[in-house]
Design a protein around this nucleic acid. Sequence first.
DNA 1: GTCTTGAGCGGACTACAGTCCGTCTTATGA
DNA 2: TCATAAGACGGACTGTAGTCCGCTCAAGAC
Lengths: 208, 208
Amino acid sequence: MNDLTGLQSVSQRSLPVLGEPRPERADARRNRLKVLEAAERLFAEQGVKNVSLDAIAAAAGVGKGTVFRRFGDRAGLAVALLDEREVELQARILTGPPPLGPGAPALDRVNAFLAAYVELLDRHVELFVDSENASDGARYRIGSYRLWHRHIAMLVEEARPDLDADYTAHFILAPLAADLHQALRAEGFTLARMQSGLTAAATALLTS
Amino acid sequence: MNDLTGLQSVSQRSLPVLGEPRPERADARRNRLKVLEAAERLFAEQGVKNVSLDAIAAAAGVGKGTVFRRFGDRAGLAVALLDEREVELQARILTGPPPLGPGAPALDRVNAFLAAYVELLDRHVELFVDSENASDGARYRIGSYRLWHRHIAMLVEEARPDLDADYTAHFILAPLAADLHQALRAEGFTLARMQSGLTAAATALLTS
DNA sequence: GTCTTGAGCGGACTACAGTCCGTCTTATGA
DNA sequence: TCATAAGACGGACTGTAGTCCGCTCAAGAC
């Protein structure tokens, strides 16, 4: 899954990229991996919101500054942890079998995406909530959201060329916000109910 | 606007309510007003996110504990400040003239609501962002969201009884999230474009 | 192997959100 | 008017996110 064009990974920073003058230094890479490993472990053990970045830095055996330089803030760390899972979904969309991958009608692809994404979301809600609570709407600027958006916009354009595809794609992605998902789960909504609600809505929206 | 049944105000705590044994104490009321006034002024002067609660407490001439006891947290204060404007919109929905108020077809009422809400949102984005970044998805539990939700769910039920009205209402409200609105504005979307995108989507969704 | 350079390091530091609890004020009713 | 208790007050305190900057050391040049 390393050479699929268009994938929006942040965890592969060690690969040399055109325009990035220097590859990642060995000590930097070592520390990045130590931090990710420590974070994953502590999050799993104690719940995402009960773990401070000091604790992660300590567990990784690095200074706090290192964590922040590398990941920017709490949300950045969560994004990096989710990255691997998201890249997998991205790959299935870009090159996997239909209906998630290319080849199926637009509506089917949208519905397949919604079902797959909400399942991923459900499995890692806490991490998603963390990653989306970035200081200044960073969610909407990071690579993976932009990829989901381009993907949906393309399909909207295909199914309903009369709509504003760019805006409508944001509209369709909005109900996937992690805090909403968490709140609805807490209110008793099942995953299946949300999935069928999403696909029913998308179907109504994209059928003329 | 004080006696409209169903309004979800938090700024009217001084009115005696059935089941609440004691009315607000005079010193409490005085301080609440001082804090709201100071917050409104400082937010306007320096931008919502540049003002700390210490600063508000100091400007209001009260202790920090008072601010927190009264409003719970930063989001609670933002909610209280928005409250007056939201109550006004609630009143227009519940008892105002159509299409916002009762009497118009469901789709028209939904579209009128979306246009009105997004305009309100646009006028107070920063405050809305603050109010929705509550610790634990409080947005979805506070009175005003619940009222918007009930309102939309009722109209969905009317227009498309085949859909899951409860879920679909959340779906329709999701694109009104303040952080999304702010991000799209920053990306260059105009208010008018968002309004027409919203009504187009809602129309597609609620027309069978 | 040695030198040079600049990216990386880390922990002290700042600022802020939110809590706690001893003190003080208000409302009540006798 | 005064006693009493429910409740409000406020500032010291705690814990965390995020910044800063002098020091370290990896990596490439020779």
